[in-house]
């Protein structure tokens, strides 16, 4: 839960006297499940190798096999880091002035919504299902007075704690 500590994280578009209080990413289980599937695919070339190596024609095709195997590994390597990129750049940044939700959808496609702390009217959290309760992951919905009335951030770890942090910052700013 190291993300629940104050950080000196800087980000693009940060205001001069703005301090990052918290950077929240989706629960790690989200990225682990995607990576696990890709790692399973990495087993395929290894299985194929053990199936074909005893054939007479393997010596002719061995160089082609190794080329295709490394090509598959390269594609999967890029896929793993693509998933990590989407995970790492989909963030909720809580600063002493505002809450920013960055949603990385793909290469060069991202959505960013923000609200100032004093415009937040209500924050609700939802934890659905046994798995989510066990892992303590849920969704956060921020009701605001801005044009974009609601901000969502899904599958976050410890949503109640994040809610408390935002509300305490809002209270601190009001006083």
């Amino acid at each position: 839960m190291s993300i629940f500590t104050s950080s000196k994280n800087s980000f693009e578009g940060q205001l001069p006297d703005e301090k990052t209080i918290l950077v929240v990413r989706k629960h790690p289980v989200v990225i682990y499940s995607s990576i696990f599937i890709i790692l399973l695919l990495m087993i395929i070339p290894i299985v194929v190798y053990f199936l074909i190596r005893s054939n007479d024609w393997y010596s002719i095709f061995s160089s082609l096999y190794w080329f295709l195997a490394t090509l598959i590994f390269l594609i999967l390597w890029i896929l793993v880091f693509y998933q990590i990129m989407i995970y790492a750049l989909t963030t909720m940044v809580i600063t002493n002035k505002r809450v920013i939700i960055n949603n990385q959808i793909g290469f060069f496609t991202h959505e960013s919504v923000e609200t100032e702390l004093d415009k937040i009217q209500d924050i609700s959290t939802t934890v659905t299902g046994a798995g989510a309760t066990f892992l303590n992951l849920g969704d956060i919905e921020i009701q605001t007075a801005s044009a974009k009335a609601k901000l969502y951030f899904n599958q976050v770890p410890n949503p109640q704690e994040i809610r408390k942090i935002i509300l305490s910052l809002k209270e601190k700013q009001n006083n």
């Binding site: 950080s7 994280n9 800087s10 980000f11 693009e12 990052t20 950077v23 890029i78 880091f81 693509y82 990129m85 790492a88 750049l89 963030t91 940044v93 960055n102 990385q104 290469f107 060069f108 991202h110």
Partner: peptide, 16 residues
């Protein structure tokens, strides 16, 4: 191109 795009996104938009 894919490698460059991933590196670019991490370096430019990565926080921390």
């Amino acid at each position: 191109w894919y490698i460059f795009s991933i590196v670019y996104h991490f370096v430019r938009f990565g926080i921390g």
